[in-house]
């Protein structure tokens, strides 16, 4: 495992506002990293600093093992990016747009350009789009085209800011499959999003940004690890309290939290007492609960890292 993105004490100050306040990102090769945060929490500024668009006030950034923004010329051709929505030349076709973008910088031989453009368009499901100018594209098609631009040079690292923005449910599912497929073939994905569900379904590692600070950074599996309790669904919650007195942590409608990390044992006790059980599961915190607990609480809670 090697660090793909690593920042130390990254700060961006706009006048009196600290948009990004000393964050230490750590993304390893092979991660699908979910970068979460409310709008205005500094996600986009961080992404722009990673890509050398915004210059940090202080702190260091290593991208694929080299120092940014100094090594941008060598590093950025190995990175594909979608930053704050797609942007294209409206009067040109999607194919022409990709071709111009590819020709604009290094790391894309003109010999293979046509083939790579076609492949990228196929990958995002725009293979048959033809010569239509981009201004006639739907929002979802533009988003796909932006993604195709990011995939053009088969990057080792994909930095994606809200990649499913504007896509319909089928499109979102397609993009998710595409990202997982790319990840299987060795691409590291850095996904910035405020959609918790999207991150929960895709990511192996999560960082949470709150008012410019990284309040949480860990494996998703660790964050949503079982709490040691069991969730029981039953139409008669009061009888559960009677049977398992002292082990019931809370009752919320038909949902009862019972201390004990073995659902089978809990089930046996309840069924033995003749209590109908309609559902049974290990209690895990949802990502939403984890994020809400980490972000937007008192400053000392915010500082604490698991």
């Amino acid at each position: 495992m090697s660090a793909v993105i690593s920042t130390r004490g990254l700060v961006k100050q706009y006048g009196r506002l600290r948009a990004v306040d000393g964050i230490d990102l750590d993304v390893q090769a092979g991660d699908v990293y979910g970068f979460l945060g409310a709008n205005g929490s500094g996600k986009t500024t961080t992404v722009r600093m990673l890509l050398g668009l915004v210059l940090p006030t202080s702190g260091e950034i290593d991208l694929l093992g080299e120092r940014m923004p100094r090594a941008g010329r060598r590093v950025l051709p190995r990175v594909g990016a979608l930053i704050e929505g797609p942007a294209h030349y409206g009067h040109l076709s999607g194919r022409e747009n990709l071709s111009l973008l590819d020709a604009a910088g290094r790391g894309g031989s003109w010999r293979t350009r046509r083939r790579r453009v076609d492949e990228a368009l196929d990958q995002v499901g725009l293979g048959g789009v033809g010569r239509r100018p981009v201004k006639a594209y739907s929002l979802g098609m533009r988003q796909r085209l932006g993604l195709a631009g990011a995939l053009l040079r088969r990057p080792e690292l994909l930095v994606l800011d809200e990649p499913t923005n504007g896509l319909d449910p089928q499109g979102i599912s397609e993009v998710r499959e595409l990202l997982l497929e790319l990840h299987r073939t060795g691409t590291t994905v850095f996904l910035s999003s405020h959609l918790l569900a999207e991150v929960e379904q895709l990511c192996s590692r999560v960082g949470v940004l709150d008012r410019g600070r990284l309040v949480l950074q860990d494996e998703l599996a660790t964050l949503t690890a079982p709490t040691g309790s069991t969730v029981v669904y039953t139409p008669t919650p009061d009888r559960v309290r009677g049977t398992l007195d002292g082990r019931v942590a809370s009752i919320d409608g038909e949902r009862v939290i019972v201390r004990g990390s073995d659902p089978a044992e809990v089930n046996a006790l309840l069924v033995g007492a003749g209590i109908p059980v309609t559902g049974l599961a290990l209690d895990r915190p949802t990502l939403e609960e984890v994020v809400l607990a980490a972000a937007g609480t008192s400053p000392d809670r915010v500082e604490a890292r698991p």
Binding site: A81, P86, A87, G90, R106
Partner: peptide, 14 residues
């Protein structure tokens, strides 16, 4: 204004 500047610079174009 079109937003293409960020993609050009991230391409990267010096």
């Amino acid at each position: 204004q079109a937003g293409t500047l960020r993609y050009l610079l991230a391409r990267p174009v010096g």
